[in-house]
Amino acid sequence: MKWLIAPNAFKGTIEADRAASLIKDTILEIRPRDQAEVCPIADGGDGTCLLLSELLGLEKVFAAVNDPLGRPMRGFFGYDAHSRTAYLDVSTVSGIKWLKEYEKNPWICSSYGTGELIMKAMDYGAGEVVIGLGGSATVDMGTGILRAMGMLFLDEKGREIPMFSPYFLERIAHVQLTSVLPDIKFTFLCDVTNSYFGEEGAIPVFGPQKGLQKQDMRRFLQASESFYRLLQAKSENGISDGEGFGAAGGIALGISAFFKTQLAPGASYFFEKVRMKDRIKRADIIITGEGRYDHQSAKGKGSFELMRLVKELGKESWLITSGEEANESGFDVILQLPDLDFKEKEVIERAEEALVKTLQQTLGRYKNLKI
């Protein structure tokens, strides 16, 4: 039996590569004659470009930059010298994971540190930057990145607005280009289809997760609309909101006003880069997983997109997940994890134990499994 072990991250508990290792060890412990290939997956969410860089064996380049609140930290990106392409995640330095609950504040948090990484990549020789949009702490429409790349944002009196200052977006009255913008193109990987504006846009859907208070919703929307009009007036490319531009607080929307930009479904892009079809063809059973499969999973998430690819190639797919929404998803076998108490201090350990135990029980029921 040949297995392809390709889990996504189990959000809040087990990283994709760790999950893959646990699944492989468990399978081979019970079925030592089987063969197992490991390829953890991502779909544009937190850590997508890190995982992609590791799977592709890219050089890891480090730089001193700022976190979402302007505190110093160490960031990095993967670099492919052959294609002159840098791979980085917004979450690496501008991620919500770096903030305590009381520090979440989209009026202050900025993508500036990600912009610093982009500039470092350009100094390194990059002509293209691929950015994973998941896990950001910001709803800044890319102003932080644009500032790091040489753009100035001025208040109504023509004074530069300091980065990481309160109500930054609302105070912008003028956008000023300080020099010729660099010649670089961007590919943004996303795992959501939300636009920036609208009822399902970044502000109402993701704003509360990033600290936006209910009473500030309208005010933040007005600030965003005002800045958007400034971008429209300043852009020579033309700028238009659309599907996917709500990811990471509108970063791709702001960048698209001045740079060549494309949005790509994170899962499809990832699978192409790691030659997932070839890996599936070599396997008999493909086993994937995520923390909780729900109605959002079928809208571009990694496990669902992998299942579609597996079906296309006529192989068998297994899914490890919690909840019951996966029962009608189309996977051949569902391994249902127990619900966890995320307030428990040892929740990661409990999650790993549950993953292993659930897989052991399922394999026990398939002792004579042969393909």
Rank of each mutant, 00 (worst) to 15 (best):
I5T: 09
N8D: 14
T13H: 14
T13F: 13
T13E: 15
I14N: 12
E15C: 11
E15M: 14
E15A: 14
R18I: 10
I23N: 10
D25L: 14
I27Y: 09
P40L: 15
D43S: 11
G45K: 09
D46N: 15
D46S: 15
D46Y: 11
T48H: 08
L52H: 09
E54L: 15
L55V: 13
L55H: 10
L56H: 07
G57I: 07
G57L: 10
E59D: 07
K60A: 08
K60E: 13
A63I: 04
V65Y: 05
N66I: 01
R71D: 14
M73Q: 13
M73N: 05
R74D: 14
F76D: 13
Y79S: 08
L88F: 08
D89K: 03
V90Q: 06
V93L: 02
S94R: 14
I96F: 04
K100I: 09
P106G: 11
W107C: 10
W107M: 11
C109W: 06
S110A: 09
L117S: 07
M119C: 12
K120Q: 14
M122L: 14
M122N: 05
Y124K: 11
A126S: 07
V130I: 06
I131W: 05
G134Q: 08
S136D: 01
I145P: 08
M149W: 06
G150P: 15
G150Y: 03
E156D: 10
K157V: 09
R159H: 10
E160A: 07
S165K: 07
P166C: 08
A173F: 02
P182C: 07
D183V: 01
I184H: 01
F197M: 04
F197E: 10
E200S: 13
I203C: 00
I203D: 01
P204Q: 12
V205L: 01
P208K: 06
Q209G: 03
K214D: 12
D216Y: 12
R218A: 15
L221G: 07
Q222W: 15
S226L: 11
F227G: 11
Q232D: 09
Q232S: 02
A233L: 12
K234R: 08
S235Q: 05
S235P: 12
N237I: 09
F245Y: 11
G250W: 04
I251E: 09
I251P: 05
L253S: 08
L263S: 02
A264F: 05
S268N: 15
Y269C: 02
Y269P: 04
F271T: 01
E272C: 06
K277S: 13
R279F: 00
R279Q: 10
R279P: 05
K281H: 08
I285E: 00
I286H: 01
I286R: 03
G289D: 00
G289H: 00
G289M: 03
S297P: 03
G300Q: 04
E305Y: 06
L306S: 03
S317I: 12
L319Y: 05
T321C: 01
T321S: 06
E324F: 00
E325W: 00
A326E: 01
V333N: 04
V333A: 03
L337I: 12
P338Q: 00
D339Q: 12
E344D: 15
E344F: 10
I348M: 02
R350D: 14
A351S: 07
E353W: 11
L355P: 13
G364M: 13
Y366G: 08
L369D: 09
